[in-house]
Simulated assay, not measured.
Amino acid sequence: MTSQRPARPLPAPEIRQGVTRLARRLSAERPADGLSPNKNSVLAHLLRNGPMSAGALAAADHQQPQSLTRVYAELEHEGLISRTRDDHDGRQRMLELTPRGREALAHDMARRDTWLDLALAELTETERQVLLLAAGLMNRLADSPVRTADRTSRTR
């Protein structure tokens, strides 16, 4: 006879709530002259991954390429990214973070990082280590290809 444990509820709602609340708080700590969330996301992807095509960057951000066209144009106009021809496919343009883009991203993140550092100081070392581990796992989850439904069916 096998003993069965009672089913434990899935942690998804609690994790979602914690992530959402923390994201909102970090957004509230954004400097008044900060980047828009889309601009911040584009620059952060380019910082982490290096030069990317517009389509690859949109896919990495789980957005449609056409929804970022204006963002790319504004970032280029502001000197935060540059567009160059792809060495392997001359028809394709690659987006690359400029030194000015790195500075803008660092400025945008600095205030939020300062708030987070102060908040983390109130936790124990063990709690900080757990959050560091969780951050890596959340990044893996964010990159997960798992989908619950076809996105196109929601836009009809």
Score class of each variant (00 low, 15 high):
V42R: 15
T20H: 10
T2G: 03
W115Y: 02
E14C: 07
A32L: 08
A60W: 14
Q4T: 10
H45V: 09
D108F: 00
R30V: 01
L105V: 12
Q129C: 01
D86C: 10
P13E: 10
T84K: 07
R151Y: 01
R128I: 05
D89L: 09
W115K: 00
A135C: 03
Q17N: 12
H88R: 07
R25D: 11
R154N: 01
M94W: 06
A142V: 07
D117N: 04
N38P: 03
T126W: 11
S144N: 09
V146L: 12
L47N: 12
S53N: 04
S3K: 06
A58W: 15
V19G: 11
R30W: 04
H88T: 07
A12F: 15
M52R: 03
T84S: 14
S144V: 04
L80I: 12
Q66S: 01
A149S: 06
L97D: 06
H62S: 03
R21F: 04
D86F: 05
R8A: 06
L43Y: 13
A73G: 07
E122C: 04
L47C: 08
D150W: 00
V71K: 13
P65H: 11
E125V: 02
L137G: 08
R154A: 13
T124L: 09
M1T: 03
P6Q: 05
R111N: 12
I15F: 10
S3Q: 10
G55M: 12
Q64N: 01
R140D: 15
L75W: 15
A59P: 01
S153M: 08
G79C: 11
S36L: 10
S67F: 02
A54S: 03
A44C: 02
L116M: 06
A28T: 04
S36E: 08
D61I: 13
D86P: 00
L118N: 03
A110N: 05
L133G: 08
H88W: 09
A149R: 10
R24M: 07
A12N: 09
P31D: 08
R48T: 04
T148Y: 09
S27P: 03
D113A: 12
G55C: 09
R100N: 05
V42M: 14
Q92L: 14
H77L: 13
